[in-house]
């Protein structure tokens, strides 16, 4: 404990952080709650001195808003698809990386590259890969590499993301992109976890003639479970906040040409309500917070049962 005589010093040292947190975290949270409870709140009107009714009208408004269900559906769908896929792939890659000796450092760097690359830039590259420019002719004028590969294997071209593309194709593009984007961080965490596992457990398993698959499922996975839990929980939290990746590929309209906002997400919904209806944005933000909170609680509850620490 700090001597009470010196407590003011402790406060002094904490002050910069506390002040910043108050201004940029505590106040915004408080203000969000306030705005969400003032029906039809907008900043402009607030400044102009208009008074608002207190109530849950904003929440009703959000739930009844025409685009909201699409946003919720897209967000949940992307989460449910990308988190398991990226976690599973990251686990495989981390285990593979951990068990090879030559070029390990080099490959670690390669797999980490997406993490330090701008997601909008990556989005543009992915957009180019899936792109298909349709001119007047029977065949598209130009297709991206993905369709070239499909053609090489004898498949038809697929309109992944351009005008007239189907929803499932859009989702595939998004899943591929989000998974690819999420891998480096997960690989990093899991690889770190693998490398901190005491090698003697593996030696002990060898002495006891344990088959490889059993070593993986009975020793590696349980010892890695805290890292897996972390990766899954942060994956879900990140997934529910998906926004920039969609903008990166489909642009600000969040959908193929002619199907605006078909891939809209919760954050997109909130973002667009800012500036014209902050009350609705705040309510939506709180709803998103509630969803993330519940999902995280479920995650924690499950991981507590499944992890051994």
């Amino acid at each position: 404990m700090v001597d009470s005589k010196h407590q003011w010093k402790a406060w002094l040292y904490l002050a910069p952080a506390i002040v910043l947190l108050l201004i940029f975290t505590v106040w915004p949270i408080f203000n969000t709650i306030r705005m969400s409870l003032l029906e039809g709140y907008t900043t402009m009107q607030d400044v102009a001195g208009v008074s608002f009714n207190f109530g849950i009208g904003n929440f009703k408004n959000v739930l009844e808003y025409h685009g909201f269900i699409t946003c919720l559906k897209n967000t949940i769908l992307l989460c449910v698809l990308t988190v398991p896929i990226s976690t599973f792939l990251a686990l495989l890659i981390a285990v593979a990386l951990n068990s090879i000796k030559p070029l390990q450092r080099f490959l670690q760097t390669v797999f980490f590259m997406p993490y330090v690359t701008n997601s909008i830039a990556i989005g543009m590259v992915f957009a180019a890969m899936f792109n298909m420019i349709i001119g007047g002719g029977a065949r598209p004028d130009s297709v991206g590499i993905v369709n070239n590969v499909l053609e090489a294997f004898g498949f038809e071209y697929i309109n992944w993301m351009n005008a007239g593309s189907e929803y499932w194709a859009n989702i595939v593009v998004m899943v591929v992109y989000i998974v690819w984007n999420a891998l480096p961080f997960k690989i990093l965490i899991l690889l770190g976890g693998l490398q901190s596992v005491n090698k003697q457990y593996y030696e002990a398993a060898r002495v006891d003639s344990t088959p490889r698959w059993r070593v993986f499922t009975k020793i590696t996975i349980p010892l890695l479970s805290p890292m897996l839990a972390y990766v899954i929980i942060t994956g879900f939290i990140g997934g529910f906040k998906e926004y920039s990746s969609i903008v990166g590929i489909f642009g600000e309209k969040m959908g193929p040409v002619g199907q605006q906002y078909s891939l809209d997400t919760m954050v997109g919904f909130i973002y667009r309500a800012i500036g014209n209806n902050e009350g609705r944005a705040s309510a939506a933000a709180l709803i998103l917070f509630g969803i993330i909170f519940i999902v995280t609680m479920i995650n924690l509850y499950v991981s507590k049962k499944k992890t051994h620490y």
Partner: peptide, 14 residues
């Protein structure tokens, strides 16, 4: 062979 490691290497999750 049976081997007892210096640090025992008991599987901590079992």
């Amino acid at each position: 062979v049976g081997l007892v490691f210096q640090n025992y290497a008991l599987y901590p999750h079992m």
